[in-house]
Design a protein around this nucleic acid. Structure first.
Length: 561
RNA sequence: GGGGGUAUAGCUCAGUUGGAUAGAGCAACGGCCUUCUAAGCCGUAGGUCGAGGGUUCGAAUCCUUCUGCCCCCGCCA
């Protein structure tokens, strides 16, 4: 639709060039905006404003010339020149109504496109180390990352989702020591409790399971406990498997899964870390200082150089990070999106710098990052800071158990990643019009309910006939709804390319609102068969778009509530 | 001190990538259920878009300075 109108403007301008009213070397790219105010028509262009100066004309005069030169089109009802020189386009009712046919025809495919052209993209998200249950921040990462995957898939990319975790570093050692202490009856606060030990209740549960010699099956491993608390290696292996399984279950309850689980330890085993060091060294970007080996990341935009190999001979996390991303590049992902908490933002420049230092032809701004800000959980107007099991933070599981998967996902994905998020438990729980999740789902359920009622009346809906009767959709509320539906493909495309799933959440809320307004004001199941057919068709089109959109957010679309 | 993010209605937040009179929801107030689900709808009220300067036909949006809040600045991840 938009392209069609843009094409008309284009030919008008070319015509003006031919008649000499516009200079031969004038250049333009037609921008068309959907209008905010329906008094301004359906689409508006500022083309006359941008070209007026070069043409030596007043914007409104040029606008008039363009309008006069527009080719005739059945799409266009009329044009108006408004304000400083905008051209407003009023579409014919028929061209607005046609969207219903498109939606019913394309069904679940409506809104999807092929702009990704099957190119490979990887989305890495959550990537929590197995040292405890997932917290709300991981939940935000999971909701945003998973929705991003769905959006990229919907726009023609070949998507691989990945979870990276460290199963061997200092934090894991700390975990093992904490579990071991619990096994030996030592509690947080005791003199023998390890420094910086994990104090949560789950450590005690883990210790008990270890002593009971349980066998743990996680997504990527099976580990049987030896029950020997003196063997720290046994404890470590068991603890990692135990917490991996717990995180798996949390993610499953959140309806999120991953194509690949990638272990940091694998980078050591395969020699990738060593290879990366050699490569950086060979390129002359390293130096020794204070007994450590440094990478001169300042050569690549970092604000200070970074240690790669510690004084004790071990590597910092930075080096495996670089090796890991090199590995991603070698796997052929021309696009990689890392979804992480904003507290990791300092790694962005560092990793990119490390990749540049490899001199492998990796693009400067690669990979992409989506960083989400902190989540605050509120209940009864008070900030909730702790969960009993985790000790120091609110777990994702707490939220899912309390408000459900749908509401949790929606709330965590409905805000711009880059803004701090307040998760209001009372709001997420409320089954009222306060709650946008139910508001949107209710729109879907209502449309389904209409079909059931239709059946109860003994009526049939005739889709093919309906498509010839769409001209009966002439109410103002119906026009608004049609215009809204028409926007959906652009919303999906934009949410995917800008990595902003929240814009889709907002759209769905607006769509639901338009639908409820219409539903409340106009009866669908009227006696007039043509009108009834047309309205049911519109209702079904809305149902389809709501279902398609919710699916991209990972939220269910119930048929009744 | 340095870096990043952010600041929009009393509250939670949008704002179609620079467009026309800045929008929703909640909270407040007033209406609508013998009619397809009231988990809904309609109306009223609410603003110096943190502050100053700049860029241009046009700025909440871009640049700059300042202020507040959040995050990071480890040979932890």
């Amino acid at each position: 639709m938009k392209e069609d109108i843009a094409g008309l403007i284009d030919s008008a301008l070319t015509r003006l060039q031919a008649t000499g009213q516009l200079s031969e070397d004038a250049q333009w790219s037609v921008s068309l905006d959907r209008t905010r105010d329906k008094a301004h028509g359906d689409l508006a262009s500022n083309i006359a404003l941008t070209l007026a100066k070069g043409a030596g004309l007043k914007p409104r005069e040029l606008a008039q010339l363009i309008c006069d030169a527009l080719p005739a089109s059945s799409l266009l009802d009329r044009t108006e020149i408004a304000g400083p020189g905008f051209i407003n386009f009023f579409l014919t009712a028929a061209s607005n109504q046609a969207i219903v046919a498109t939606i019913l025809d394309q069904g679940a495919a409506f809104g999807r496109n092929h702009s990704g052209q099957g190119r490979k993209v990887q989305v890495e998200f959550v990537s929590a180390n197995p040292t405890g249950p997932l917290h709300v921040g991981h939940g935000r990462g999971a909701a945003v990352g998973d929705s991003l995957c769905r959006l990229l898939q919907a726009t023609g990319w070949e998507v691989s989702s990945e979870f990276y975790y460290n199963d061997a570093g200092a934090q894991i050692n700390n975990l093992a020591l904490s579990v071991q202490a619990r096994c030996l009856g030592v509690q947080p606060g005791d003199a023998a409790w390890p420094e910086d030990g994990y104090r949560g209740e789950y450590i005690a549960e883990l210790a008990e399971a270890f002593l009971r010699k349980e066998t743990i099956e996680a997504q990527d491993r099976v580990v049987a406990s030896s029950g020997d608390a003196n063997n720290l290696e046994d404890v470590r292996a068991f603890a990692v498997a135990y917490l991996r399984r717990e995180q798996d279950l949390d993610l499953k309850a959140f309806d999120v899964d991953f194509d690949v689980y990638f272990l940091e330890s694998a980078l050591y085993e395969s020699g990738a870390v060593e290879h990366t060091v050699q490569r950086l060294n060979a390129n002359g970007h390293c130096y020794e200082k204070d007994g450590a080996m440094w990478l001169r990341t300042t050569d690549f935009g970092d604000d200070k150089d970074r240690v790669m190999r510690k004084r004790d001979g071990g590597y910092t996390y930075f080096l495996p990070d670089v090796a890991y991303h090199l590995n991603k590049w070698e796997r052929g992902f021309e696009r990689v999106i890392n979804e992480q908490g904003a507290d990791h933002h300092s790694t962005v420049t560092r990793v990119r710098a490390g990749l540049q230092a490899l001199e492998q032809g990796i693009p400067k701004g690669w990979p992409d990052y989506v960083l989400h800000q902190m989540v605050t959980v509120m209940r009864d107007g008070q900030e909730v800071k702790l969960s009993k099991r985790a000790g120091s933070y609110v777990t994702l599981r707490d939220l899912i158990d309390e408000v459900g998967c749908d509401a949790t996902r929606y709330f965590l994905v409905a805000r711009a990643p880059n803004s701090q998020l307040t998760f209001d438990i009372d709001l997420a729980l409320s089954q009222s019009n306060d709650n946008p999740v139910y508001y949107i789902q209710y729109a879907h359920a209502r449309a389904c309910s209409v079909m059931r009622k239709l059946d109860e009346h003994g009526w049939q809906w005739h889709p093919e006939e309906a498509l010839t009767q769409l001209d009966r959709l002439e109410q103002e509320h119906e026009t608004a709804l049609l215009r809204r539906l028409d926007r959906y493909p652009e919303v999906v495309a934009n949410a995917a390319s800008a990595s902003e799933p929240h814009t889709l959440a907002n759209y769905l809320r607006d769509l639901a609102s338009d639908f409820h307004t219409w539903y409340n004001g106009h009866k669908m199941l009227v006696d007039d068969p043509a009108l009834r057919n047309a309205r049911v068709a519109l209702s079904q089109a809305v149902r389809q778009v709501v279902a398609n959109g919710l699916d991209l957010l990972g939220v269910s679309a119930p048929t009744e509530m």
